[in-house]
């Protein structure tokens, strides 16, 4: 089955919690964020890396969706 329908495999998942302190636009940011780093083995057997940043509300939404998936699995 895996050979027929391959949407890619999650190889690595890393995260970091950080706070933006300052930037060229603002000297007092103090904004928390989550950085996520994902490695995926695609259907051509190539590893691609993706990184993205989430604000706390975005992360909560992101995490909630995984919780919902987990709850669905529990019902199976």
């Amino acid at each position: 089955m895996d050979k027929v329908f391959n949407v890619g495999k999650l190889v690595d998942f890393q995260w970091k919690l950080g706070v933006s302190i300052a930037s060229n636009h603002s000297s007092q940011l103090n904004t928390p964020f989550i950085t996520v780093f994902v490695k995926v083995l695609d259907s051509n057997s190539e590893v691609t890396s993706h990184s993205f940043e989430l604000t706390i509300p975005e992360f909560k939404n992101f995490a909630q969706q995984f919780k919902d998936m987990s709850n669905m699995i529990e019902t199976l």
């Binding site: 995260w15 919690l17 950080g18 930037s23 060229n24 964020f33």
Partner: peptide, 17 residues
């Protein structure tokens, strides 16, 4: 040029960064 200073506090590998 745009820059931003971040302080990383925790990660999946390290409790206190």
């Amino acid at each position: 040029v745009n820059w931003r200073l971040d302080l990383f506090m925790k990660s999946n590998a390290v409790e206190k960064l």
